[in-house]
Amino acid sequence: QTQEFDNEEEARKAEKELRKENRRVTVTQENGRWRVTWD
Score class of each variant (00 low, 15 high):
1 Q>E: 12
1 Q>A: 12
1 Q>L: 06
1 Q>K: 11
2 T>G: 07
2 T>S: 14
2 T>N: 08
2 T>P: 03
2 T>A: 07
2 T>H: 06
2 T>V: 11
3 Q>V: 10
3 Q>T: 06
3 Q>D: 06
4 E>A: 04
4 E>Y: 15
4 E>I: 15
4 E>K: 03
4 E>M: 13
5 F>R: 00
5 F>Q: 00
5 F>A: 01
5 F>K: 01
6 D>Y: 06
6 D>C: 09
6 D>V: 07
7 N>I: 04
7 N>Q: 04
7 N>T: 15
7 N>H: 08
7 N>Y: 07
8 E>K: 02
8 E>M: 04
8 E>G: 02
8 E>T: 01
8 E>D: 01
8 E>H: 04
9 E>Q: 08
9 E>N: 08
9 E>L: 12
9 E>Y: 11
10 E>S: 10
10 E>G: 05
10 E>M: 07
10 E>N: 03
10 E>W: 02
10 E>F: 04
11 A>M: 03
11 A>Y: 02
11 A>V: 03
12 R>N: 03
12 R>P: 01
12 R>L: 10
12 R>V: 05
13 K>E: 11
13 K>H: 13
13 K>Y: 04
14 A>Y: 10
14 A>D: 01
14 A>I: 12
14 A>W: 15
14 A>G: 03
15 E>H: 04
15 E>T: 05
15 E>R: 02
15 E>Y: 09
15 E>G: 04
16 K>E: 10
16 K>M: 15
16 K>N: 10
17 E>A: 13
17 E>K: 13
17 E>G: 06
17 E>D: 03
18 L>P: 00
18 L>A: 10
18 L>V: 02
18 L>D: 02
19 R>A: 13
19 R>W: 13
19 R>S: 10
19 R>P: 02
19 R>Y: 06
20 K>H: 11
20 K>V: 07
21 E>A: 05
21 E>N: 13
21 E>W: 09
21 E>T: 14
22 N>M: 09
22 N>F: 13
22 N>S: 08
22 N>E: 05
23 R>E: 12
23 R>H: 10
23 R>S: 12
24 R>Q: 13
24 R>S: 07
24 R>W: 12
24 R>T: 15
25 V>C: 07
26 T>A: 07
26 T>V: 14
26 T>M: 09
27 V>Y: 01
27 V>M: 07
27 V>G: 00
27 V>P: 01
27 V>C: 04
27 V>K: 01
28 T>P: 01
28 T>Y: 07
29 Q>V: 13
29 Q>G: 08
30 E>I: 12
30 E>A: 08
30 E>Q: 11
30 E>H: 12
31 N>Y: 04
31 N>K: 08
31 N>P: 02
31 N>V: 03
31 N>W: 05
31 N>I: 03
32 G>P: 02
32 G>Q: 02
32 G>I: 02
33 R>I: 14
34 W>L: 01
34 W>T: 00
34 W>V: 01
35 R>A: 08
35 R>F: 15
35 R>H: 11
35 R>T: 14
36 V>D: 00
36 V>Q: 01
36 V>L: 06
36 V>K: 00
37 T>M: 05
37 T>K: 09
37 T>N: 09
38 W>G: 02
